[in-house]
């Protein structure tokens, strides 16, 4: 792995105040993201996987400063994002783009595809009218859409094609970082594979760095170099994709892996069924967030919060569990 870090997130926290009572005072906090740190190297794909409400999308939006994080530091391409002024932020957002789960909601239904794709160039004052038109056609070609799409509206396209439009818009300004927030979870299987292939191709061609967020571990593993597993606002395990799958250590990672239905009827169906449900991020449990559902929990797990630290065997392998060394091998 090269040491050329593009994005560095340090102890990111995003707490939402919960208000209530007669005077509408703040009565509690929703600890949506509670101390997340990671780095992404240039050209690399980091996958973030986790169940609903674990804070994975909040991390994505905080990186773009679509949300104002409560605490923490974000450094992108050597620049501090958190304390950046509005004009600077606009400038730097050319280099960091996002695609969303539902392209129908993120594309303006009253604009033609041509207008939608031209907008990034207009906002950043690039090119003449004729040049921009040419670029739009190039973009459509790049994401596998016909050039006559420019005069059509988003509703005339299928879900997969709309996601292609969303991708085209995101790569228009040749960003360095592309954040993909559940880009394929609304799509059918045969379309999903087309979009995943497209993302892999574009990454190779344009030297993109990807932050890929999804709840489907098989999908995340397919596109990622490294994977971070999130649970209730924290990263519980981070490792390179192959090792995470072959040698999961955190009990939650293991439960997640064994919960996935495998498309192979011959394989024996042994599942560790995880009991209970994800606790609320408003009142996260003391100690390890996972202890109430963890089959291995000991005294210490209920009292002390584990840190995300490297394992003895491998400095790139981070696990947040008091008992991790017992589980390794």
């Amino acid at each position: 792995m090269s040491q050329d870090v593009l994005l560095k997130v340090d102890d990111l926290k995003m707490h939402y105040p919960i208000r209530g009572g007669v005077l509408f005072r703040q009565i509690a906090n929703n600890y949506a993201v509670d101390g997340v740190s990671f780095e992404i190297n240039r050209g690399e794909t980091l996958g973030i996987v986790g169940e609903s409400g674990c804070g994975k999308s909040t991390v994505a939006k905080a990186i773009l400063r679509l949300y104002e994080p409560t605490a923490g530091a974000i450094e992108f391409d050597g620049k501090d994002i958190i304390n950046m002024s509005k004009p600077d932020l606009r400038e730097i957002r050319q280099d960091m783009q996002i695609i969303f789960q539902d392209p129908m909601e993120s594309l303006n239904s009253r604009h033609t595809v041509g207008t939608i794709l031209e907008e990034p160039f207009v906002i950043h004052g690039k090119g003449t009218r004729a040049e921009r038109r040419k670029w739009v056609t190039d973009l459509l070609d790049k994401v596998g859409l016909q050039s006559d799409s420019v005069n059509r509206f988003p509703h005339e396209f299928s879900g997969g094609q709309r996601q292609r439009i969303g991708i085209a818009r995101a790569i228009a300004l040749k960003p360095k970082l592309l954040i993909c927030d559940e880009p394929v979870s609304a799509l059918d299987v045969s379309i999903q594979s087309q979009i995943l292939n497209l993302l892999l191709d574009l990454q190779r061609e344009m030297d993109l760095t990807l932050l890929f967020i999804a709840h489907d571990l098989a999908v995340v593993k397919h596109v990622s170099d490294r994977i971070a597993v999130m649970y209730l606002g924290k990263i519980v395990e981070m490792n390179d994709a192959e090792s995470l799958y072959k040698n999961p250590v955190h009990p939650y990672t293991r439960a997640l892996l064994s919960s996935i239905p495998v498309p192979d009827p011959e394989r024996k169906k042994v599942h560790d069924v995880l009991t209970g449900e994800v606790p609320s991020p408003i009142n996260p449990p003391d100690g390890c967030h996972f202890h109430a559902r963890c089959p291995y929990a000991e005294q210490i797990c209920t009292k002390q919060r584990p840190e995300l630290t490297t394992t003895n065997s491998n400095p790139n392998w981070l696990v947040s569990c008091h008992l991790k060394e017992n589980f390794i091998n």
Partner: peptide, 14 residues
């Protein structure tokens, strides 16, 4: 066309 856990990462899908 389904991505599986046991196929290598970053390979092309059918």
């Amino acid at each position: 066309s389904i991505p599986r856990l046991d196929t290598p990462s970053k390979s092309r899908l059918e």
